[in-house]
Design a protein around this nucleic acid. Structure first.
Lengths: 255, 255
DNA sequence: CCGGATTTGTTCGTATGTATA
DNA sequence: ATATACATACGAACAAATCCG
């Protein structure tokens, strides 16, 4: 039997194939100064460039896709990803869903982090806000009140409200973290704060926050944020008996 | 030609194969109340269970591995992952490396977030800390001073110090976020704060923080944290000229 | 609107490396 | 040392999506 020398696979032992491929794709992006949306070589070209099979390249791309470092469009090509915090959302959301069966620890900790960030930014938010923002905040708070009066949900307004608070700070990362934490909360506890009292308190809390920003009253802002998250915490504690926010979003079946 | 009916691929339109597989693996973990370290079915079993090929299953597993939802041990099996924030670290670190070429915006924003969290937790940290913690903080600060005197690095002590601050709060998520942000900082700017003045200021800042905690002086704690991150910010601003912390960690070659 | 070219998605078969008993 | 179970890797073929002439 003739040995064909199937390419000295891993000259230096250790590094897994796909890990190496993923690393080189990242290097490629960095060295060529590519940004989100820029095109990457095709799978075939990547295979030839790194000397790996298409399967390995694809698995490496899968890893980078999960981190939103690359983005793949079927039948079109591979591109540099948006570099969002989608991975954080999915990872944290799963943790929350797992712990939800027993307690709401993860969700409870998440609420504490959200509150800490908003209160910690109180002074900056209040001083950096302008009239336009004040109008938007108040408008959203009123929309939420109207939705509540009609018995409708106002999750979109709620999300937008908390994002708007961070906007004047000009800190992209902070805004994205706020969005990510909000999304995780919404995934893990989609319908936890829906008791009539909670809804009323929540609406009023947002109004109070908006007023505090407009008055540029830091202390009032901190108190309003505290009042906003207090009922959420209470619901989390009591959520243990009521079984939380329904069963796990049933999948196609869990073999 | 007889149609073999290769399984009604996607009965309902849209969902990609691997996406569906990944979703069902997550459902499997949730429905069976598995925790980190628990064993998952083998690849072959997963293939049969979800009716997909090995390649698809493997790519789905790759995605979940990147999020640390599953963990694969070569030649051993597939297990539920540690659910760490590793994905956040890798994702954010890459963003930082990308933006580093132009400016240090991401890193600068990261510093602001770190400072906000630590200052926001000032009151809780100060009140929740105990004598044992005080001793450890002071000890670490002294170790850092000694290292600096010998011209050595003290990154390990620095990391441990900031983690210890969050420990008394009992918020697992907060501790992991602190660790993640610290790691990102270390990856993106591995040797940025190494000017003699910076080192001196940094050591003194940690000592001041430790003293503030011991004295349970919230205001002093906030000031000390401010003093800790101020030089870091300055270095970031000046880092633009000096070209930052060296070139991108060179890979095996970037085709 | 259609057809061909390009590119990614999926599958199968096979071979190899690794860990456990 | 052998055998078994398992993950890793490769390559070829076909399906599906997208684009363009």
């Amino acid at each position: 039997m003739v040995e064909i020398a199937p390419i000295p696979r891993s000259p230096r032992g250790a590094m897994l194939r796909q890990r190496e491929v993923a690393e080189r794709i990242k290097q490629y992006i960095l060295h060529n100064h590519l940004g989100p949306g820029d095109a990457l070589p095709t799978e075939a070209e990547l295979c030839e460039a790194v000397g790996a099979s298409r399967s390995s390249v694809r698995e490496a791309i899968k890893t980078l896709t999960a981190l939103d470092i690359v983005e793949v469009r079927h039948g079109h090509g591979t591109y540099v990803g948006r570099l969002s915090l989608a991975a954080l959302v999915e990872s944290l959301a799963f943790r929350g869903l797992l712990s939800r069966a027993d307690d709401f620890r993860v969700l409870s900790e998440l609420v504490e982090v959200r509150q800490t960030i908003e209160q910690g930014m109180a002074a900056s938010i209040v001083t950096a806000s302008d009239e336009a923002l004040h109008g938007e905040l108040l408008d959203l708070a009123e929309q939420m009140a109207e939705c509540a009066a009609r018995g409708e949900s106002f999750i979109e307004q709620d999300r937008e409200f908390h994002l708007l608070l961070m906007e004047p700070l000009g800190n992209e990362l902070l805004t994205q973290l706020t969005a990510a934490f909000w999304d995780v909360h919404a995934i893990v506890a989609p319908s936890l704060d829906t008791t009539p009292e909670s809804v009323r308190e929540t609406v009023e809390a947002h109004r109070a926050i908006a007023r505090a920003v407009m008055a540029r009253d830091v202390a009032a802002f901190v108190r309003a944020v505290e009042a906003h998250y207090a009922p959420v915490r209470d619901n989390l504690r009591e959520g243990l008996q009521s079984g939380g926010s329904g069963p796990v979003p049933a999948g196609p079946g869990d073999f």
